[in-house]
């Protein structure tokens, strides 16, 4: 009987000890103490041989029962403790998610570059190709071949920066005042159909202020084919305005003058800031002028040996900085070339 009692005692002591354990690492200690090779229950089983056969069976059965009870209790306890541990580790691993993240260094394209690309992409989607030309040009390409001969009154429209030696020389060299010279260079080299856009830097002899720079970009465009009409000029530029300024845009075309086109056009879009009611951006007119255009002047076509009886075309030109100023609400064009990083980081 004493053996029996001691087995029950072991069980209750073991279960008591197990219940007190709160650390999963201590479970093994407990297992060794009760269920290990020299544990208390094992000692009982090992001591069975000294008992009379009857008692041996009874105690044996009892001890085995206790063993399985303890093993099951251990398993359950282990599970409970593991769950508790996991919970603790989850709770201990809570982060302050409001701490700042580690940003990779990010560079940005200059806003002019971004807008130049946007403009070009819009025309590329309409079958235009991007071409570029020299920034230092001959008077011939910048003026003469564009129907602006020497002493033409329209030369006043472009204040020119000349390269030494000056304009009296036989072949005057200048900083191009527009990217329009590429109209001539492209048509000299290729036959119609022509559809090109020409992004690039242009230069003017001009004192700088909030709306004037002496260096800026221009995107020139040219389409020449057998049946290009004024109607298509309008349609193409309208489509451009929809792509850049939104599909709900309205456009307006008015008569303007550039010597290398006839008829000459200026295109405006309805003000995207006020919807046409009038605001500061549109000078209360409800309209924003965004580009000059027109049907290619027959004199220009003759300069490149295109027969104006066969071919017609249109040309246009616009200023990316002006577009960027409109899009982003920039009020001073000088910011573009001041390269103040506090400005550039905003785009």
């Amino acid at each position: 009987m004493t053996q029996d009692t001691s087995v029950d005692e072991i069980q209750s002591q073991a279960l008591g000890a197990l219940g007190a354990i709160d650390d999963i690492r201590k479970l093994d200690e407990w297992r060794v103490a009760y269920l290990g090779r020299s544990g208390r229950l094992t000692s009982v089983l090992r001591g069975l041989g000294a008992l009379p056969p009857e008692a041996r069976r009874e105690v044996g059965q009892r001890a085995n029962m206790v063993k399985s009870v303890l093993e099951k209790a251990l398993e359950e306890k282990e599970e409970v403790l593991r769950q508790a541990e996991l919970q603790r580790s989850i709770e201990g691993g809570k982060l302050d998610i409001t701490l700042p993240g580690r940003r990779p260094n990010r560079g940005r394209l200059h806003p002019t570059t971004q807008v130049v690309r946007e403009i070009c992409d819009a025309f590329v989607a309409m079958g235009f190709q991007i071409v570029e030309g020299p920034e230092v040009e001959w008077d011939y390409y910048n003026f003469e071949a564009l129907n602006i001969p020497k002493d033409h009154p329209a030369r006043d429209m472009w204040d020119t920066i000349w390269i030494d030696p000056p304009s009296e020389s036989e072949k005057p060299m200048l900083l191009r005042t527009h990217t329009s010279p590429m109209q001539i260079r492209v048509m000299e080299k290729t036959q119609p159909p022509v559809r090109v856009v020409v992004p690039g830097k242009v230069y003017r002899y001009e004192a700088t202020d909030a709306t004037h720079e002496s260096q800026f970009y221009q995107v020139e465009g040219l389409a020449v084919d057998t049946n290009i009409t004024f109607a298509e000029l309008k349609g193409t530029l309208y489509e451009f305005a929809r792509r850049i300024f939104g599909t709900e845009r309205k456009v307006r075309f008015r008569c303007d003058y550039f010597p290398f086109v006839e008829p000459g056009v200026e295109m405006a879009i309805d003000c995207f800031a006020c919807g046409g009611r009038g605001c500061r951006i549109c000078s209360n007119s409800g309209w924003i002028e965004i580009m000059g255009a027109g049907m290619v002047h027959p004199e220009v076509l003759r300069h490149v040996n295109y027969d104006p009886e066969i071919y017609t075309g249109f040309a246009f030109g616009l200023g990316p900085e002006r577009i960027a100023m409109l899009k982003y609400g920039i009020d001073d064009i000088r910011l573009f070339y001041s390269n103040d990083l506090r400005f550039l980081y905003q785009f």
């Binding site: 190709q129 159909p193 022509v194 559809r195 389409a223 109607a231 309008k234 193409t236 075309f253």
Partner: peptide, 17 residues
């Protein structure tokens, strides 16, 4: 100008160069 027709660009797209 605004009372004149407007149409999309027709004709052939130039060869890619």
């Amino acid at each position: 100008y605004d009372n004149l027709p407007m149409s999309p660009l027709s004709g052939s797209v130039p060869r890619y160069e």
